[in-house]
Nucleic acid binder design. Structure first.
Lengths: 136, 136
DNA sequence: ATAATCCCTCTAGTGACTAGAGGTTCAAGG
DNA sequence: CCTTGAACCTCTAGTCACTAGAGGGATTAT
């Protein structure tokens, strides 16, 4: 049995975050000490690792709730899991594309060699969208 | 003089968002109608365009506050503006790099051809970090 | 027994909005 | 001039995934 602090150290998830996941219904407390402190088994540890890893990969709490539910039914088809992952992948790709457009524009306007605000491309471009290369 | 609704249409910023920018101290109201409604001049329109464009480029409200302040002093050197833009560019690049690692990993685990949860790479990988290629 | 560390619950704050309640003002048509 | 409907006003609360802090109780090592 682990205390919440031990679980925290083993999974690399902060203590208040563990309590937050519990509140969100991702992680049940299996037991309490006589003095009302949370006690976890290796099951809890595995479940929290799953949650942490999913969060690292950018899945939302809601996605994780569904993925956890799916993972409990080992004989079911895994299409739903694939759909969740595919949707998330598309969202990540969309964000990358958008950020790359921003990167391009920021690089361009950062090349300004002006000395004063009056001629500065950064300020100028922000004030007037027509100075931009791409949409964003 | 424009009403807040006109400003909204011209700048493509929603009405509550304009009021939010005002509350954040980015946009002052220049005038009010007899019945207490906001009235803006072309100055307000330019300022809101600046704000909107900066937001489109991903600058934070705090960054925009500083950029707006800088843009008022046309004779000052523009090093500060460049620093803000450069810092933001680095942050965008960092986010791109991280998202690309996620993309890679999500693509990899999405290639799973298993039919059931028991053998599904998506679920498997989430449960066990050692199945990953890269850090994230 | 005591001190240090851990843990408990509860509330509120973050950023950049968005939604809604409940009421007032404006502009156009009759 | 009067009515109607759209637009406007302020204020509060909700979003997401945490994080910080207050004010207390439990556990563990000495």
């Amino acid at each position: 049995m682990f205390s919440i602090g031990e679980l925290s150290r083993r999974c690399g998830v902060k203590v208040p975050t563990i309590r937050y996941y519990e509140q969100m219904g991702l992680l049940e407390i299996e037991d309490r000490s006589a003095g009302n402190q949370r006690r976890y088994s290796v099951d809890g540890l595995n479940r929290l690792s799953f949650i942490r890893h999913s969060r690292d990969l950018g899945f939302s709490i809601e996605d994780i709730r569904q993925l956890l539910e799916l993972s409990r039914h080992r004989e079911q088809p895994c299409d739903d899991a694939h759909n969740i992952a595919a949707r998330h992948l598309r969202s990540v790709q969309g964000r990358i594309a958008r950020l790359q457009r921003l990167e391009h524009e920021l690089q361009r306007i950062s090349q300004c060699e002006a000395g004063s605000v009056a001629d500065c491309a950064v300020i100028e471009t922000l004030a007037d969208h027509t100075h931009c290369d791409t949409d964003h």
